[in-house]
Design a protein around this nucleic acid. Structure first.
Length: 256
DNA sequence: AATCTCAGCAACCGCGTTATC
DNA sequence: TGATAACGCGGTTGCTGAGAT
């Protein structure tokens, strides 16, 4: 690729590049930031000789080139946090990402859209529906906690206990408190910084914030009897069989 | 082997907020 | 105090590779 090597502050570059970044561009951006630091992205793009918008440079740096960025392999712990925090805050990806060190809002957003929404689709319910949230809380999250316990090979960390209970026994708590009990303890357990202050601070994007569903704890139904006896779909591998079961099945089983 | 389909992901876009002049 | 540039966020698009047909 060719660069025009314009001096910093020179005339406008009209033929901006778009699309995937090349190795050369990455190197230029990384080297420039190593020397001059980040920020002032528009002038940075010009001064570095990149035929990109400042926006594009910022995005590339934050989502890909930053040295502390982690990509791929969302761990069960991270999945758990994402589920919990999304339950609290909704699509506040940046806020959620703050509690997953090294993860970007873009990656979490992609994870949600590709993995989580896929499960909702397979269950024939909306990802924001109460039904799906119940499935997440009473099946998915306990399942993740069990996986974490199995992987650690030891007893379940105290922070998870309330979450894991529903899998093997009946409802441990009133639904009115269910939404926050495990959340706070989880947040302080493995995710620096702690999320326990999330509600109060509740950063907003004024006007765009659907505060009705992000500023309050989730409300969950009591765990249905017999829920724990249901087989687990494989959330992680996305192998919920097409005919395995549906949310309707869950509630019908509860009724009859 | 060729084609099709779809999941995953990187990047872009629009818009609201914040900072600076 | 208003204008505007810069920043940051969330939604969306489009490319790519893997699996299915």
């Amino acid at each position: 690729m060719e660069f025009h090597g314009k001096s910093c502050g020179g005339e406008e570059e009209l033929d901006l590049r778009r699309g995937p970044w090349t190795v050369d561009e990455d190197l230029i951006l990384v080297n420039y930031i190593a020397v001059h630091g980040e920020g002032r992205w528009n002038s940075l793009a010009r001064c570095a000789g990149l035929k990109r918008t400042g926006k594009s440079c910022r995005l590339r740096w934050l989502n890909y080139l930053r040295p502390d960025v982690r990509r791929g392999n969302i761990t069960p712990e991270e999945q758990l946090l994402i589920l919990e925090l999304h339950c609290r805050w909704g699509n506040r990806w940046s806020k959620i990402a703050q509690h997953l060190p090294g993860r970007t809002d873009n990656e979490i957003k992609n994870y949600w859209r590709t993995r989580v929404q896929k499960h909702a689709k397979q269950l024939k319910c909306d990802v924001n529906s109460k039904q799906f949230k119940d499935v997440v809380r009473f099946l998915w999250i306990p399942h993740l906690v069990e996986r974490i316990r199995a992987a650690s090979g030891g007893p379940l960390p105290a922070a998870y206990e309330n979450v894991a209970v529903p899998v093997t026994s009946g409802p441990p708590e009133n639904s009115s408190t269910a939404g926050s009990s495990s959340l706070d303890s989880l947040g302080t357990q493995f995710s620096p910084p702690a999320v326990s202050d999330g509600f109060a601070s509740g950063g907003t994007r004024a006007g765009a914030d659907n505060s009705a569903d992000v500023s309050q704890p989730c409300e969950f139904l009591p765990i249905p009897d017999g829920y724990a006896d249901l087989g687990f779909p494989d959330f992680d591998q996305g192998m919920w069989g097409d005919n395995l079961w549906t949310v309707e099945d869950v509630w019908l089983q509860q009724l009859f």
